[in-house]
Nucleic acid binder design. Sequence first.
DNA 1: TTAGTAAAAGACAATGATGTCGCTTTTTAA
DNA 2: TTAAAAAGCGACATCATTGTCTTTTACTAA
Lengths: 184, 184
Amino acid sequence: MGNKGTKTKQAIRQQAYRLFAEKGFKAVTMTDICEKTGLSRGGLYRYYSGTEQIFSEILSEEYVIADRIEKKEKATVILEDMLKTIKAEIMNKELSLSLAIYEYANLGNEEFFTNINDKAKKRWMSLLEYGIETGEFKTVDTEQTSDLILYYYQGLRMWSRVISFEEQVAEYYVKTVKQLLLRE
Amino acid sequence: MGNKGTKTKQAIRQQAYRLFAEKGFKAVTMTDICEKTGLSRGGLYRYYSGTEQIFSEILSEEYVIADRIEKKEKATVILEDMLKTIKAEIMNKELSLSLAIYEYANLGNEEFFTNINDKAKKRWMSLLEYGIETGEFKTVDTEQTSDLILYYYQGLRMWSRVISFEEQVAEYYVKTVKQLLLRE
DNA sequence: TTAGTAAAAGACAATGATGTCGCTTTTTAA
DNA sequence: TTAAAAAGCGACATCATTGTCTTTTACTAA
């Protein structure tokens, strides 16, 4: 029984990931992926029937977002943690799928992203509610503030690929979110 | 002397604009533009040597941004005006070049956008300084706040293409900016 | 060791886009 | 009216990419 297959698929996805991060979705061809993986066209097609399929598998691997946070720690600690992750994401332009994702979404795969977005928003709202409940956060409109946090982040992430950002820009983001939520 | 040319060029750009807005930059071919304009390939190539050239001309037509605001009106009035424009931009997904711009920028045309971005930021900073000076706005960190206003907007504009937004999302944006700047 | 199956290779035709070139039509100005 | 210039046409060779198909190679289990 061939179980070498799953390993190969993983290797394909890994190489494809790098390509998508570098060039976006549309610019990556099956031939590119062949070259990177060292596989022949025939070989690659055995596993995946096209770039869409590969990318969609990469996405479902990548985006496993819980809609709610775990209310085990203090809200401020969770917040710090999330901001740290976000800051790192904004700053490393090399491995960002943002362009690829955006192109892919525009190719008629809206549902997936409506979904992801919903979940991310719910997650933030859930955190904000929690923080307000425990008194750690200021009393803000949770939906409005979640929107701000999310789309501000999206804007940054998108353009950080293109424009060379200084660290400061990410810093401002963190600062803004904290100022909105935390009591002085 | 043939001055029919400039009219034709304009017509080409107009049709191309629609295509870019609809499909992004990479997906639009010279052949597409031929079909839309009714011109033959040979005819089109007489005017433009490729999609890059067309798009770049469209951009320089579109983005004529002054870096400073005119300090003739009240800051609040200017703000209202800018927000109104932005809201409209977020809401009409059909004619947004956002995807095309993003793809184009990622193709190695960073400078242009670094420039545009700089100007837009300076414009906002200039408005904020003005408003603070006249006492209409709260005393905020102008750079930090401009960043927020800009990238939050970019995030919204990008995703409004993909995700079907309700009016509310744009409303939140406006509300947020006003809350940040205006005294209650 | 070997037969059978899985994995990989690479040739193939088909497609669709590119940029060029020579020819035709239309416009313009004298 | 006419000749020169501008505008427009479409065929052409070329290229990159696609997905398929047959053949070859490598494993694996009896």
